[in-house]
Design a protein around this nucleic acid. Structure first.
Lengths: 358, 358
DNA sequence: GGCAGCGTTGTGACCGCTCACAATCGTTGC
DNA sequence: GCAACGATTGTGAGCGGTCACAACGCTGCC
């Protein structure tokens, strides 16, 4: 079953005699309208000092010739790009994809075009950054992970830049203008919820963090730990931290499943929760009867799992929108970015959590 | 729980006296190296007619000044952009996201920068297209749906363009160079598989199609229908066709669940399958004991569902790669796109399918 | 009537790079 | 010894816009 198809252009796909006629320039328009190129420039820039009648004439010429201002020439001459580049290590994981979507929407609404560059450990970070910087008007960095965070740190100070990041440690500020969600508090609340249901402790399966070594703790882990400590419980050793998806968490899920004392598990994201769910199922432990599971992020499919997943909803799109606003504030002198509009987090309780059976 | 954070740049974030010094130009390099700007241009373009010693000198100057060729000026002067724009109606659904990922990888490998523009029903398609076209060197259209397909049709003939599309009807060719997977055959094989297991018929929950009205059939529906007809079975009325996600298919799943004759369901993608799975569960019908379900696309989480989902694996990344190659062939005179490299489809059998009871 | 002042339009230079062509140099050939 | 030649290098123009400034015509005023 590997039948596939494609069509390709002929070697000479251009009909003879039909040169790819190049787009009209302002000088073409000027000639057609009987004015100077500068007047055309004024018209397309809505400069007030143009007589009504002249403007009409120029606009007519623009219309008939199908003129559109060449963005490249505009960028070169004016130094203004109206384009931004997103730097991210991933485009498909839910959190990243949703953030990217928010960034794109905001950019489109503001009339900016959006470039995307995926960061890989193999590529030279500085090289990638400087090429992206010279390409476009500004950089938007998704700094959820190590790669993204270190890219953010290396963006030269004179390059306009904004970021979406993991909640920074208390008292620390990200190196650049940034937005984030208070994951720490959200994780604390989710953990507290499990404790309130009557669980004696809560185990944690971690996502990778954006800082330091594998064993260092991200904000979600910190919130989890804080909730336990506030309840006078010694936190057990956290699991995971090496991958983002279900494949990565399945093993951890198996270990947890074999420990009969485990009755509640908080996962760093919904994909990890899925792997844990699967492992628990294989081990014959049912959710939520034997074990409660909470995810993080509220991915679109989490609601439809069986059992449907209790999880922490995040407003990634809102984060993206706001990060773009922050960048736009640096790009346009007269633009003041509005206060953050994203809605923070919310614990969505579904079927995967309940009180423990004594 | 709506605590969030952000930092913004001060109003005057630039340290006084530290102007954002503009990047060095080839003339700066030329002066530093004691040659003309044209010689510098030759060096950065690897023109052979430069004496070894001169080249060394220029390269040293480039290094010390940290010169990088301005892509905007290069584009304007040469007419070559080394950038492409992806037009898509969606960035988060698995098929789209994975295709985008393939496109991005290929573009990055070839040294192209990649722009993304999301198509919406509200925006003026022609406007979006022409702005994307003037922005970059070429267009890559993801034409899985109506919006994408109609965008593809409207791309002016003189704009370089390649697409990833739904398999076209027999004997038809897409309007532009394109790649696709033979979904029709894959759906036929998946349906045939269910029949071979002993099911008397197979029901179908459709994804939206890229052509015509809601009720017209995409290649997956055609393949399903063909398999049934080949077995002498009158195809039942297909369901769905109005949405891509689990929310859209849940209702259809409910209807199917209440019909005791339904023992096998093919879904247009894995998300729809998820909604159907959920509806069956709610109706008390177990999978695969009472009903077999097959999805399409092999999304990353499908393997970890319970029951894990039998599905048709697609090589979206490969499609993206190949589509980029097709575009690159139009952009560079001396580049011949390689033959398609994507691997087609494969039926992945997991827990959600088996022979019917009785 | 002459001139300042305004509204409107045109000219020249330039953004950073490429292209086509001209200029320079040291060799070579006869 | 000199023209021809190839290898190098430099010059001018232009890509399609913008900016700064000059120039024009008209009105209002003393």
């Amino acid at each position: 079953m590997d039948v596939t198809g494609h069509t390709s252009p002929g070697r000479h796909s251009r009909p003879p005699g039909q040169e790819p006629r190049k787009a009209p320039s302002i000088r073409d328009v000027a000639q057609a309208a009987g004015v100077s190129y500068q007047t055309v420039s004024r018209v397309i820039n809505r400069h007030p000092a143009v007589r009504e009648e002249t403007r009409k004439r120029v606009e007519a010429a623009i219309e008939t010739l199908g003129f559109r201002r060449n963005p490249t020439a505009f960028a070169l001459a004016s130094g203004v790009t109206r384009s931004v580049t997103v730097l991210t290590s991933n485009t498909t994981l839910y959190g990243y994809a949703a953030t990217l979507q928010g960034l794109e929407e905001a950019a489109r609404a503001a009339g900016y075009s959006l470039g995307v560059k995926v960061l890989t450990p193999e590529d030279d970070l500085d090289r990638t950054i400087s090429s992206a910087a010279s390409d476009g008007g500004g950089l938007l960095v998704i700094g959820f992970d190590r790669l993204g965070a270190s890219a953010l740190r290396r963006v030269p100070a004179d390059v306009p830049c904004a970021a979406v990041v993991e909640a920074p440690p208390h008292g620390r500020k990200p190196p650049r203008p940034a937005v984030w969600t208070d994951d720490r508090e959200a994780a604390r609340a989710a953990t507290a919820h499990l404790l309130e249901l009557g669980h004696r402790t809560v185990h944690y399966v971690a996502i990778p963090t954006s800082v330091g070594t594998r064993r260092s703790e991200g904000p979600r882990a910190q919130g989890w730990r804080a909730a336990l400590e506030a309840a006078g419980i010694t936190p057990p050793e956290p699991h995971g931290g090496e991958g983002w998806d279900a494949r990565a968490s399945y093993d951890q899920g198996q270990q947890l499943a074999h420990d009969p004392d485990v009755t509640a598990i908080l996962c760093g994201n919904d994909d990890l929760a899925l792997g844990v769910l699967r492992a628990l199922h294989h081990a014959g432990r049912s959710v939520p009867e034997d074990v409660s599971v909470i995810g993080f992020d509220d991915a679109p499919h989490s609601e439809f799992l069986t059992p449907s997943l209790t999880t922490v909803r995040m407003d990634f799109q809102g984060l993206g929108r706001d990060a773009f606003g922050l960048l736009r504030g640096q790009l346009e002198n007269d633009y003041r970015p509005p206060a953050p509009t994203f809605v923070g987090t919310a614990l969505i309780t579904r079927e995967s959590t309940r009180h423990p059976t004594t």
